[in-house]
Simulated scan of single mutants.
Amino acid sequence: MVFPLEQLVEYDGNMYEITCAASRRAYQLSMMKDPEIEKNDGKVVSLAARQVFTHQIEFRLEA
């Protein structure tokens, strides 16, 4: 799976917020050594972005 560009282009929310969420999720996945990473050819950021855009995970930013 490559980076979900279609979903990124269609996204009409806060771009900073979604970027932070995907970045944090990518960090979590790499620290946990999630087996899903190998299924995604080692592409942690694209996996994290897909999870955020498809609402597999929920996120909120705290001030």
Rank of each mutant, 00 (worst) to 15 (best):
M1H: 13
M1G: 08
V2M: 10
F3K: 10
P4Y: 04
P4R: 00
L5R: 04
Q7L: 12
Q7D: 08
L8G: 06
L8N: 09
Y11D: 15
D12A: 14
G13R: 13
G13N: 15
N14W: 02
M15R: 13
M15I: 15
Y16Q: 05
E17H: 14
E17L: 13
E17R: 05
E17F: 13
T19Q: 05
C20A: 12
S23N: 13
S23T: 15
R24M: 04
R24G: 07
R24P: 03
R25H: 12
R25L: 11
R25A: 08
A26S: 12
A26R: 01
A26N: 00
A26D: 10
A26E: 02
A26C: 11
Y27R: 10
Y27T: 07
Q28C: 09
Q28H: 03
L29M: 05
S30R: 00
S30W: 01
M31V: 15
M32L: 09
K33A: 14
D34C: 07
D34V: 10
P35N: 00
E36A: 14
E36L: 15
I37F: 07
I37M: 10
I37D: 07
K39N: 12
K39I: 05
K39Y: 07
K39L: 06
N40D: 08
N40Y: 15
D41H: 04
D41K: 07
G42Y: 01
K43A: 11
K43G: 06
K43C: 03
V45A: 07
V45I: 12
S46Y: 10
S46I: 02
L47A: 07
L47H: 02
A48F: 01
A48T: 01
A48P: 11
A48V: 02
A49Y: 09
A49D: 13
R50H: 08
Q51P: 09
V52Y: 00
F53K: 07
F53V: 07
F53T: 00
F53E: 05
T54S: 10
T54D: 14
H55Q: 12
H55S: 06
H55Y: 04
H55L: 04
I57G: 03
I57E: 03
E58M: 03
F59R: 03
F59W: 13
R60G: 02
R60L: 04
R60T: 10
L61D: 05
E62C: 06
A63M: 02
A63R: 01
